[in-house]
Design a protein around this nucleic acid. Structure first.
Length: 575
DNA sequence: GCCGTTTTCGGCCCGACTGTTTTCAGTCG
């Protein structure tokens, strides 16, 4: 049983409790514990074995005992008893939009509905609107929501898609009369690896006007809700967008609110209450009713006695305590990245020549660039034989002469980690390369012990400088390899091998919580794009966002170092 | 059920929007 399976049980308990009418705080407690377990970077089973379950925020005595029972017996009596009282199919019913615990309970008790299929049948038969407090509109809306739930393939989109759509919408919104500012908020602004709805915040002197224009954008397929300050719509591609509009002098608190995460905001509001203030998107209210309004976001934090917290940290992972103590990290920024350490050319599976990649890198403002094509065994990617690798080195030397001293060209390779943990080029060939990235592409489904040992063996090879996209996951497509991350980061730290944050939005590997574990263990990181096309160099912002979510400072990121320092580090470690 | 620079008991964020209501409950973020 993995983290997510355990987490889902607690989330289901929360839902069923809510339908049953349990105290809301109990419901919240189970939900919070479930979410915390979902977000965990370490294997819950390891934490259980070390008897540290209660160190997880939101897990106390009662829930720790339940986790213990799950691992010992593979079942949970409490949960089985609960599902005998409240049908577990109602969890799915609760996932239908506009159906909450109260309605789900009534549908079940008054109409015997225990699944979405039954709900749909009842709605089509017009049975829902017969219930008191329900009408034809509510019934139609529920039916509509069941259909969209079915059509939506995945509920969350990748960061690059979210980014692209929001940039277009923001640009359009900024040209609406009266709109002074338009910014992205929500999980996109926090650079979460996937985004559900897009959240946009506007400052406007004439809010109603902005909303009217927005709902008539050609991208908008239907309006889900429309009010004075908040409008939500669905675009033709199914993307949901929420827009908030506030007057300019309240923009700061509105942007802060819409940026989340919810848990972060709840913490801030609790803190405000302790200071005799009530915080909402409109600003602060004192006990006597007078207001403190915040045109700038930093003022929200200022009134709370905190340094401004960068959005990527706002996950309730200790950032408020750090802000209070003045110990927030100096997060790495996009402009700190001086070089690209992982990029492909048409020598293997890249789209363009080495020269074109180098030109793109130079034009992107980088001062050094590694061409790292695939090694020989990855036939599907046209991996380089030893002979071709040698030819490539010669051509690259010529290119270096062309680009001159201000742009350093380095010869690397993305070397396959073979199924037995050996590498795809012999040590003497690795020694000739400027930089070696070792990556897994095959045999990802080996058992945890096998694949972990395989990586540990590679990490202890002195020629290996970077481990590329550690887990091999493809978000929404391919599960990560089952690895003992804690062991790997400790060994990588001991050998001073850097872990890559692969910036490709489909990978973002290592992910934020693992990158943070690595930094805590003293590991170095590299933020690479793994570009197969010049356009992919723009992925860097997503890698930087991920690093920031891991609380990374530039000192720990080897490609923020000037090339001399990087080369000194490379020769030190292989010498 | 969890948690603690007000507390080991008594709290637990705040507001917008909708539909069905005659003043509000339910849902959502």
């Amino acid at each position: 049983m993995n983290n997510h399976q355990v987490a889902d049980i607690f989330l289901a308990i929360a839902d069923l409790f809510e339908i049953k009418g349990e105290t809301v705080y109990k419901v919240l407690a189970y939900r919070k514990a479930g979410e915390a377990i979902h977000e965990l970077g370490t294997d819950l089973r390891d934490i259980w074995q070390e008897d540290e379950l209660k160190s997880i925020p939101g897990v106390g005595t009662a829930i720790a005992e339940k986790i213990d029972e799950l691992y010992r017996t593979d079942k949970l009596e409490f949960y089985e008893k609960l599902t005998s009282e409240v049908p577990s199919g109602l969890v799915e019913v609760l996932a239908v939009g506009n159906v909450g615990p109260k309605k789900a309970a009534r549908f079940w008790q008054e109409l015997g509905i225990t699944s979405v299929a039954e709900l749909e049948r009842a709605a089509r038969a017009g049975e829902l609107q017969k219930l008191s407090g329900m009408g034809a509109k509510s019934e139609a809306r529920i039916l509509e929501n069941i259909e969209t739930m079915r059509e939506r393939k995945t509920d969350r989109m990748l960061l690059d898609k979210a980014w692209a759509i929001s940039q277009v919408l923001l640009e359009m919104l900024r040209s609406v009369p009266g709109v002074l500012r338009a910014e992205a908020a929500g999980s996109l602004r926090r650079y979460r690896e996937t985004v559900g709805d897009l959240d946009l915040v506007l400052a406007s002197s004439v809010p109603g006007e902005a909303m009217k224009v927005f709902v008539n954008f050609p991208q908008v397929a239907r309006v889900l809700g429309k009010g004075d300050t908040k409008t939500s719509v669905e675009l033709h591609d199914g993307t949901r967008v929420q827009v908030w509009v506030h007057p300019p002098d309240r923009f700061g608190s509105a942007w802060q609110y819409a940026s989340g995460a919810q848990a972060h905001n709840v913490r801030l509001r609790e803190r405000a209450l302790r200071m005799g203030l009530s915080l909402s998107e409109h600003g602060f209210k004192k006990e006597d009713g007078t207001e403190l309004i915040c045109p700038e976001e930093s003022q929200v934090y200022e009134w709370l006695g905190l340094a401004w917290i960068p959005p990527e940290l706002r996950e309730d992972r200790g950032e408020i305590a750090a802000a209070e103590a003045g110990e927030l990290p100096e997060l790495v920024e996009l402009v700190d990245i001086l070089g690209e350490l992982h990029a492909h050319s048409d020598w293997s599976d890249g789209a363009v020549s080495m020269r074109e990649m180098l030109v793109a890198g130079r034009d992107a403002g980088l001062s050094y660039f590694v061409i790292s094509d695939h090694s020989r065994s990855l036939g599907i990617a046209n991996g380089l034989s030893l002979e071709r690798l040698e030819e490539q080195r010669e051509e690259l030397a010529g290119l270096q002469a062309e680009f001159g001293k201000t742009f350093k060209v380095l010869h690397g390779a993305e070397v396959e980690i073979l199924a037995d943990g050996s590498l795809d080029y012999p040590d003497e060939v690795l020694a000739e390369l400027d930089i070696v990235i070792a990556s897994l592409h095959t045999s990802l489904r080996q058992t945890r012990d096998v694949v972990t040992e395989r990586l540990l063996r590679v990490i202890s090879n002195p020629h290996v400088d970077i481990i590329g996209h550690l887990t091999g996951r493809l978000i929404g497509k391919r599960a990560p390899a089952d690895l003992d991350i804690e062991r790997i980061v400790n060994v990588a730290s001991a050998h001073q091998v850097a872990l890559e944050i692969n910036s490709n939005p489909e990978r973002l590997d290592v992910r934020d919580v693992h990158a943070r574990m690595a930094l805590d263990a003293g590991c170095l990181l590299a933020i690479n794009t793994d570009a197969h096309h010049p356009d992919h160099l723009n992925f860097r912002q997503f890698g930087v966002g991920t690093a920031r979510r891991a609380w990374a400072e530039s000192e720990s990121i080897i490609n923020t170092w000037p090339v001399d320092r990087l080369q000194a580090w490379l020769s030190d470690r292989s010498g």
